[in-house]
Simulated assay, not measured.
Amino acid sequence: MDEDRTPDERLKRQRDDLQLLNQVMRHDIRNDLQLVGAYAELLDDHVDEEGERYLEIIKENTESAVTLTTTVRDLAQVMLREDAEPKQVSLDHVLSQQVEEVRSAYPEAVFTVEGSFPDEAVVADEMLSSVFRNLLQNAVQHNDETPPSIEVSAAVVEDTVEVRIADNGPGVPEHLREEVFGKGEKGLDSPGAGIGLYLVRSLVELYGGEVWIEDNDPKGAVFVVELDIAQ
Protein backbone atom coordinates (compact mmCIF):
# COMPACT_ATOMS: atom_id res chain seq x y z
CA MET A 1 0.00 0.00 0.00
CA ASP A 2 1.10 3.61 -0.59
CA GLU A 3 1.24 4.21 3.18
CA ASP A 4 4.10 1.72 3.42
CA ARG A 5 6.29 3.66 0.99
CA THR A 6 8.95 6.13 2.06
CA PRO A 7 8.40 9.82 1.20
CA ASP A 8 10.94 9.53 -1.64
CA GLU A 9 9.18 6.45 -3.02
CA ARG A 10 5.79 8.18 -2.88
CA LEU A 11 7.23 11.23 -4.65
CA LYS A 12 8.74 9.03 -7.37
CA ARG A 13 5.40 7.23 -7.78
CA GLN A 14 3.58 10.55 -8.10
CA ARG A 15 6.10 11.77 -10.67
CA ASP A 16 5.74 8.54 -12.66
CA ASP A 17 1.94 8.88 -12.59
CA LEU A 18 2.19 12.49 -13.74
CA GLN A 19 4.56 11.48 -16.54
CA LEU A 20 2.07 8.82 -17.68
CA LEU A 21 -0.79 11.34 -17.59
CA ASN A 22 1.32 13.75 -19.62
CA GLN A 23 1.99 11.09 -22.27
CA VAL A 24 -1.70 10.15 -22.49
CA MET A 25 -2.70 13.81 -22.75
CA ARG A 26 -0.07 14.51 -25.37
CA HIS A 27 -0.79 11.49 -27.53
CA ASP A 28 -4.09 9.62 -27.13
CA ILE A 29 -6.50 12.38 -26.14
CA ARG A 30 -4.97 14.96 -28.49
CA ASN A 31 -5.06 12.52 -31.42
CA ASP A 32 -8.72 11.67 -30.76
CA LEU A 33 -9.66 15.34 -30.63
CA GLN A 34 -7.81 16.11 -33.85
CA LEU A 35 -9.66 13.21 -35.52
CA VAL A 36 -13.01 14.65 -34.36
CA GLY A 37 -11.99 18.03 -35.76
CA ALA A 38 -10.98 16.53 -39.11
CA TYR A 39 -14.29 14.67 -39.53
CA ALA A 40 -16.20 17.81 -38.51
CA GLU A 41 -14.52 19.64 -41.41
CA LEU A 42 -15.66 16.88 -43.80
CA LEU A 43 -19.28 17.46 -42.74
CA ASP A 44 -19.31 21.06 -44.03
CA ASP A 45 -21.08 20.13 -47.28
CA HIS A 46 -23.46 17.63 -45.69
CA VAL A 47 -25.48 19.67 -43.20
CA ASP A 48 -28.33 22.13 -43.61
CA GLU A 49 -28.34 25.71 -42.38
CA GLU A 50 -29.43 24.79 -38.87
CA GLY A 51 -26.86 21.99 -38.76
CA GLU A 52 -24.13 24.46 -39.67
CA ARG A 53 -24.64 26.22 -36.34
CA TYR A 54 -24.22 23.01 -34.39
CA LEU A 55 -21.25 21.94 -36.50
CA GLU A 56 -19.51 25.24 -35.81
CA ILE A 57 -19.99 24.69 -32.07
CA ILE A 58 -18.40 21.24 -32.41
CA LYS A 59 -15.44 22.71 -34.28
CA GLU A 60 -14.90 25.54 -31.80
CA ASN A 61 -15.06 23.30 -28.75
CA THR A 62 -12.82 20.68 -30.33
CA GLU A 63 -10.24 23.35 -31.11
CA SER A 64 -10.52 24.67 -27.55
CA ALA A 65 -9.99 21.17 -26.14
CA VAL A 66 -6.90 20.61 -28.33
CA THR A 67 -5.51 23.90 -27.01
CA LEU A 68 -6.22 22.75 -23.46
CA THR A 69 -4.25 19.51 -23.99
CA THR A 70 -1.25 21.61 -25.03
CA THR A 71 -1.56 23.74 -21.90
CA VAL A 72 -1.89 20.71 -19.61
CA ARG A 73 1.13 19.12 -21.32
CA ASP A 74 3.18 22.26 -20.71
CA LEU A 75 2.04 22.49 -17.08
CA ALA A 76 2.99 18.84 -16.48
CA GLN A 77 6.39 19.50 -18.06
CA VAL A 78 6.96 22.36 -15.61
CA MET A 79 5.93 20.17 -12.66
CA LEU A 80 8.18 17.32 -13.78
CA ARG A 81 11.33 19.38 -14.10
CA GLU A 82 14.02 18.96 -11.46
CA ASP A 83 16.24 21.89 -10.48
CA ALA A 84 15.69 23.68 -13.80
CA GLU A 85 17.51 27.00 -13.94
CA PRO A 86 16.37 29.91 -16.15
CA LYS A 87 18.82 30.92 -18.85
CA GLN A 88 19.23 33.53 -21.60
CA VAL A 89 16.46 33.48 -24.23
CA SER A 90 15.97 35.73 -27.26
CA LEU A 91 12.73 37.60 -26.61
CA ASP A 92 12.43 38.83 -30.21
CA HIS A 93 12.68 35.31 -31.66
CA VAL A 94 10.22 33.65 -29.24
CA LEU A 95 7.62 36.43 -29.27
CA SER A 96 7.72 36.91 -33.06
CA GLN A 97 7.32 33.18 -33.62
CA GLN A 98 4.31 32.92 -31.30
CA VAL A 99 2.59 35.94 -32.86
CA GLU A 100 2.90 34.33 -36.30
CA GLU A 101 1.74 30.90 -35.10
CA VAL A 102 -1.33 32.23 -33.28
CA ARG A 103 -2.12 34.58 -36.18
CA SER A 104 -2.16 31.56 -38.52
CA ALA A 105 -4.35 29.57 -36.11
CA TYR A 106 -6.93 32.40 -35.78
CA PRO A 107 -7.31 34.02 -39.23
CA GLU A 108 -10.49 35.77 -38.05
CA ALA A 109 -8.47 37.90 -35.61
CA VAL A 110 -6.43 41.00 -36.40
CA PHE A 111 -2.92 41.01 -34.92
CA THR A 112 -0.85 44.19 -34.92
CA VAL A 113 2.77 44.47 -33.82
CA GLU A 114 3.65 47.95 -32.59
CA GLY A 115 7.21 48.81 -33.58
CA SER A 116 9.93 46.17 -33.27
CA PHE A 117 10.69 43.88 -30.38
CA PRO A 118 13.88 44.51 -28.35
CA ASP A 119 16.79 42.27 -29.30
CA GLU A 120 17.85 41.81 -25.66
CA ALA A 121 18.01 38.31 -24.19
CA VAL A 122 15.78 37.80 -21.15
CA VAL A 123 15.93 35.44 -18.18
CA ALA A 124 13.64 32.53 -19.13
CA ASP A 125 13.84 29.08 -20.72
CA GLU A 126 12.35 27.05 -23.59
CA MET A 127 8.88 27.29 -21.97
CA LEU A 128 8.69 31.06 -22.59
CA SER A 129 6.88 30.28 -25.85
CA SER A 130 4.06 28.76 -23.78
CA VAL A 131 3.69 32.04 -21.85
CA PHE A 132 3.12 34.12 -24.98
CA ARG A 133 1.07 31.45 -26.77
CA ASN A 134 -1.41 31.23 -23.88
CA LEU A 135 -1.73 35.01 -23.56
CA LEU A 136 -2.25 35.50 -27.31
CA GLN A 137 -4.80 32.68 -27.51
CA ASN A 138 -6.60 34.06 -24.47
CA ALA A 139 -6.85 37.48 -26.13
CA VAL A 140 -8.74 35.86 -29.03
CA GLN A 141 -10.77 33.15 -27.30
CA HIS A 142 -12.23 35.45 -24.64
CA ASN A 143 -12.95 38.31 -27.00
CA ASP A 144 -16.54 39.32 -27.80
CA GLU A 145 -15.74 41.72 -30.65
CA THR A 146 -15.88 41.04 -34.40
CA PRO A 147 -13.12 40.96 -35.36
CA PRO A 148 -11.01 40.36 -32.26
CA SER A 149 -8.14 42.86 -32.35
CA ILE A 150 -4.84 42.20 -30.57
CA GLU A 151 -1.90 44.60 -30.38
CA VAL A 152 1.50 43.32 -29.24
CA SER A 153 4.39 45.54 -28.16
CA ALA A 154 7.57 45.23 -26.11
CA ALA A 155 10.00 47.76 -24.72
CA VAL A 156 13.03 47.97 -22.44
CA VAL A 157 12.18 49.52 -19.06
CA GLU A 158 15.39 50.02 -17.04
CA ASP A 159 16.84 46.49 -16.58
CA THR A 160 13.69 44.65 -17.69
CA VAL A 161 11.65 44.09 -20.84
CA GLU A 162 7.89 44.68 -20.70
CA VAL A 163 5.72 42.79 -23.18
CA ARG A 164 2.19 44.15 -23.57
CA ILE A 165 -0.61 42.16 -25.21
CA ALA A 166 -3.68 44.38 -25.57
CA ASP A 167 -7.10 43.27 -26.78
CA ASN A 168 -10.47 44.88 -27.51
CA GLY A 169 -12.51 42.32 -25.58
CA PRO A 170 -14.69 42.74 -22.49
CA GLY A 171 -11.74 43.43 -20.17
CA VAL A 172 -11.12 42.02 -16.71
CA PRO A 173 -12.69 43.77 -13.68
CA GLU A 174 -10.08 44.79 -11.14
CA HIS A 175 -11.49 42.57 -8.39
CA LEU A 176 -11.05 39.47 -10.59
CA ARG A 177 -7.51 40.10 -11.82
CA GLU A 178 -5.90 37.80 -9.27
CA GLU A 179 -8.50 35.06 -9.72
CA VAL A 180 -7.98 34.73 -13.48
CA PHE A 181 -4.40 33.62 -12.79
CA GLY A 182 -5.67 30.80 -10.59
CA LYS A 183 -4.46 32.48 -7.41
CA GLY A 184 -7.85 33.61 -6.16
CA GLU A 185 -10.36 31.93 -3.88
CA LYS A 186 -11.71 29.71 -6.68
CA GLY A 187 -8.29 28.54 -7.90
CA LEU A 188 -8.39 26.86 -11.30
CA ASP A 189 -12.19 27.29 -11.44
CA SER A 190 -11.70 31.04 -11.67
CA PRO A 191 -13.35 32.95 -14.52
CA GLY A 192 -11.33 33.53 -17.66
CA ALA A 193 -8.76 31.19 -19.15
CA GLY A 194 -8.20 29.20 -15.95
CA ILE A 195 -5.33 26.77 -16.26
CA GLY A 196 -3.68 28.61 -19.17
CA LEU A 197 -3.21 31.79 -17.16
CA TYR A 198 -2.19 29.75 -14.11
CA LEU A 199 0.60 28.29 -16.24
CA VAL A 200 1.58 31.78 -17.45
CA ARG A 201 2.01 33.14 -13.93
CA SER A 202 3.78 29.98 -12.71
CA LEU A 203 6.38 30.26 -15.47
CA VAL A 204 6.87 34.01 -15.22
CA GLU A 205 7.39 33.78 -11.46
CA LEU A 206 9.84 30.92 -12.02
CA TYR A 207 11.86 33.33 -14.20
CA GLY A 208 11.81 35.98 -11.48
CA GLY A 209 9.44 38.19 -13.48
CA GLU A 210 5.92 39.52 -13.01
CA VAL A 211 2.64 39.44 -14.94
CA TRP A 212 -0.38 41.66 -14.37
CA ILE A 213 -3.48 43.09 -16.06
CA GLU A 214 -4.31 46.70 -16.93
CA ASP A 215 -7.29 48.37 -18.60
CA ASN A 216 -7.08 48.97 -22.33
CA ASP A 217 -8.36 52.18 -23.92
CA PRO A 218 -11.18 52.47 -24.94
CA LYS A 219 -12.06 48.87 -23.97
CA GLY A 220 -10.45 45.54 -23.32
CA ALA A 221 -7.51 44.32 -21.26
CA VAL A 222 -3.73 44.56 -21.44
CA PHE A 223 -1.71 41.62 -20.14
CA VAL A 224 1.77 42.80 -19.19
CA VAL A 225 4.73 40.45 -18.77
CA GLU A 226 7.88 41.86 -17.18
CA LEU A 227 11.09 39.84 -17.56
CA ASP A 228 14.62 40.62 -16.39
CA ILE A 229 17.22 41.31 -19.07
CA ALA A 230 19.89 38.61 -18.95
CA GLN A 231 23.25 39.94 -17.81
Rank of each mutant, 00 (worst) to 15 (best):
E9T: 05
M127K: 03
L197N: 10
E226W: 10
V102F: 04
E205P: 09
P218V: 06
K219D: 08
D48M: 12
L11H: 10
E126Q: 15
N216W: 01
V122W: 04
L206F: 06
E85D: 09
N61K: 07
E185A: 13
A65D: 05
V102D: 02
A166C: 08
N168K: 04
L75N: 07
E52N: 08
D28M: 10
P170W: 01
D167K: 09
V89C: 08
Q23H: 09
Q141Y: 11
E60H: 06
L199E: 02
L42F: 07
E179K: 12
M79P: 06
V180R: 01
T69M: 10
L21R: 13
D119R: 15
D215F: 00
S96T: 15
H93G: 01
E214V: 06
L33E: 02
D17F: 15
A155M: 01
K87Q: 14
R13S: 12
D8T: 14
T112F: 02
D16Y: 02
I165R: 05
D217K: 07
I165P: 10
K59W: 15
F181R: 13
G194E: 01
V200L: 02
L18T: 10
G194V: 02
D32E: 12
P218H: 00
I57R: 08
Q19A: 11
E50C: 02
G187A: 05
N216Q: 02
L33N: 08
R103Q: 14
N168A: 07
P86V: 08
P191M: 03
V152A: 12
K183M: 12
Q141F: 02
